[in-house]
Design a protein around this nucleic acid. Sequence first.
RNA 1: GGCGACGUGGCCAAGUGGUUAAGGCGGGGGUCUGCAAAACCCCUAUUCGGCGGUCCGAAUCCGCCCGUCGCCUCCA
Length: 481
Amino acid sequence: MKISDTLSGKKTDFKPIGKVVTMYVCGVTPYDDSHLGHAMSAIIFDVVRRYLRFRGYQVKVVQNITDVDDKIINRANRLGVTAAEIAGKYAQSYKEEMEALNVSPVDINPKATEEIPTMLEVIKGLIAKGFAYAANGSVYYRVKNKTDYGKLSRRKFDTMMVGASVEPGEEKEDPLDFVLWKAAKPGEPSWESPWGKGRPGWHIECSAMSTKYLGEQIDIHGGGTDLVFPHHENEIAQTESYTGKVPFVKYWMHNGALQLGAEKMSKSLGNLVTIRDFLTKHTPDSFRIFVLGSYYRSPLTYTEEAVAAAQSGADRLVRVVNKEVAAGKKKALEPKPYYDRFIEAMDDDFNTPQAIAALFDLARDINRAEEEGMNAGKARETLKELGGILGLTFEGKAEATIDIEPLKKLASAINQKAKTAGVSAGAVADDIETIMASLISMRKELRKAKQFNLADEIRDGLSAIGIALEDTAQGTVWKRK
RNA sequence: GGCGACGUGGCCAAGUGGUUAAGGCGGGGGUCUGCAAAACCCCUAUUCGGCGGUCCGAAUCCGCCCGUCGCCUCCA
């Protein structure tokens, strides 16, 4: 299989360094509800690890939680709680949202605050090698000593000088230098260090954690394209100068940003849809179909129309997978060609749009085959299996709760009319199943007697309550709309 | 200003040198049905932002132009 790498800009054969594929994915800074941009990234790298495992690789995945940061502290101060409380709360809801989105859990999920000693080790090592220096209780990375700095984001020193922020009273040797350790300020969480109390800079945690849990060189590093500079550039600088091993990462995978309207969906811009809100209106599968329907490196624009289209498509797959059909007598539908197409697509740098196309073709051909009396059992299993690699659950919409009162009211109204119509009326029970069974059997009688007006009244009445009736060859079935 | 992408049917979106330009959604027609729903069938881009060029041959390569976006500050 082939994977694109941001650093080389090329798509090359995937050859892991060791037996176990090592993968590091940047996690979130939990200071607020997560949005669909986070969900998109999580889903893409979920699919990467699901597919690698499917292809027989052992995969070890680490994802950090940046639980100490300016934004967490600011928010905590505003609300009068501790930073740890804010971080804990949102880290927990992120975890729950990932579960709801069917993102498979990572193997190791370290928190920055629990890895301070690891980070201090790395920082000390960098100072010892001349790649970092302490100043006024802070420690900075010395960019000019890393001659290939800028290689990931393709930036050159002199052009970067222009944009680099130089704050007043700056103790940096060079404006490009970035902070590894921040001297403590009053009212902020801090830890002891050889340079006094302080807290870690943002980038250092990823270097520390990936080195500690995955080794000095790793196979895959993932994250959003917005992390390329400065975050990943700085990670490379820190890690490579600390370990002396190049390259730090063999395959840099970056997913395109999720746009909302004309801009990137982001917390700081305030234009976002939270995962929570999305899931009240749509299924997890619909977001998968939406995200995976486009190439992971390209930006994707969120629109209600596009999401509704994805939802319709997802619903169709759910119906096909869950349809109960008596096994056909004629020959079986052979799923191999679809399976092969799926693999071929996924092997080509995770071409999920093509992979999904294969699934939709398979779904259509399952329906067609069963219509012709063929056995599509094996094909249906394949659809389920391949969909599972993409993390599809094949679960329908969250069951809309149906009010029993209007249903009872409808049932008794229909019972009255049934008597006049000379059809045996059912009892108005207290549970939905019984009432539905009764209504369906009444409607059956009515249709047999060609009393279509009243039969349709049942169907229309149910429809108004949110229940759909379908007359299939196996009889009438009902479902929540 | 620097760096990097992108522009394909009504909408979303694959394809990146050569048989009929995937797939989804939507729309139109049909089959089934008492009527529906679901499902299936058929139709819906001679054309890939514009203009030049390379080539036997380009949506795919090159140049210019127009338009959109991301990064350059925290960000998945």
